[in-house]
């Protein structure tokens, strides 16, 4: 993992695709999570199962707040993928094009090699399993002490094991006798067709043609930045009806501590919202955290510094 971390260099390009902030590199995803407490949401599903709604994979979508925070910390920058792709597509000619095609080809070859190796490993494993089964079968058959020949096709259950082993034996023999057939199936040197997930090779960082404006974030951004600067991990808060779920450590290892909801400094909060939030939070062993930017306080330049927060818990009486 440490090795793949070295391939991640800041600033990281964040792809902006139809208003979403996406990351396509697993090393970047791991790096951001470990180093910058950015969790994001994995949104990729398997093409064969587009209705999949659990165990998602790449790409990872970032909340606008997360994208803005990374941009402000100069850890990342936003790339408008459409503009970048167009520019790149039009300008790619001659040698560049050949290079690109070559990179696709080598990726295809790599994929083919990996599949081949996996298939080889699988067949080796199957063969060794068969061999052990056969050895077992041979040991068992004399133990049964039946004098009848094994080619007797009587529906005698005591012989099923041996006859089964024999059938398998013949398959085993057949496969073993014609390794060339197996070889030809894999011998084709054609690279697998590869569909790239991005329109540029990952090592060549895209230069930003026209830097898009900072991500447009909701008003709760200042609370987000405040909590993030205090080392909390932040996830979307839909499941508890709040702005953010706030975790004291990596969400894979910790339960969340707070249900955080942001308010404007003078925004009126109905009593019922406070009591409902406090009650829900206590019921799930969390605190209901309200907070927002103190517009009257002077800022020290650090974001989220002028945010004031209050935690609400049930009084137990």
């Amino acid at each position: 993992m440490a090795q793949s971390f070295e391939s991640v260099s800041e600033p990281i390009p964040i792809s902006l695709v139809s208003g979403r902030y996406l990351l396509f590199d697993v090393n970047v995803v791991t790096y951001l999570r470990r180093t910058h407490h950015i969790c994001g949401t994995l949104i990729g599903s398997i093409p064969q199962n587009p209705q999949q709604n659990i165990f998602h994979g790449l790409p990872m979508e970032l909340m606008p707040e997360e994208a803005k925070l990374l941009v402000q910390k100069e850890v990342a920058y936003i790339v408008d993928d459409l503009a970048w792709h167009k520019q790149r597509y039009e300008s790619m000619k001659g040698e560049d094009k050949q290079k690109y095609l070559q990179s696709l080809r080598s990726a295809g070859l790599k994929a083919r090699k990996a599949t081949q190796e996996q298939a080889k490993k699988n067949s080796e494993m199957a063969l060794s399993r068969l061999a052990t089964q056969k050895a077992k079968g041979k040991k068992e058959s004399p133990a049964e002490g039946t004098p009848e020949p094994p080619d007797d096709k009587l529906p005698d259950t005591s012989f099923h094991d041996t006859s089964g082993a024999q059938e398998e034996d013949s398959i085993f023999g057949g496969e073993g006798s014609s390794p060339s057939r197996q070889g030809t199936a894999f011998a084709s040197n054609k690279p697998y067709p590869v569909t790239p997930t991005t329109s540029y090779a990952s090592p060549s960082l895209p230069q930003n043609p026209s830097p898009p404006p900072d991500p447009c974030v909701p008003l709760s951004y200042s609370l987000f930045a405040h909590l993030h600067s205090r080392g909390y991990y932040i996830m979307p808060g839909l499941r508890f009806g709040c702005n953010y779920n706030v975790y004291p450590g990596d969400p894979l290892r910790f339960h969340s501590h707070f249900l955080a909801t942001s308010f404007e400094w003078d925004q009126e909060i109905p009593m019922l919202d406070l009591i409902g939030g406090g009650r829900l939070g206590t019921a799930v062993k969390k605190g209901f955290l309200i907070g927002g930017e103190d517009t009257e306080a002077e800022t020290d330049g650090e974001w989220g510094d002028n945010v004031r927060t209050f935690c609400i818990e049930w009084g137990g009486m």
Binding site: L274, I275, T282, G287, L289, F310, E313, W314, G315, M317
Partner: peptide, 24 residues
Amino acid sequence: LLATLHDDSTVVYYIVHDGIVKPR
């Protein structure tokens, strides 16, 4: 303790902390 009174004379009590305090 935030004491909230309802017209039916129910009073509920919620603890409000000034700042971030981890939950019980």
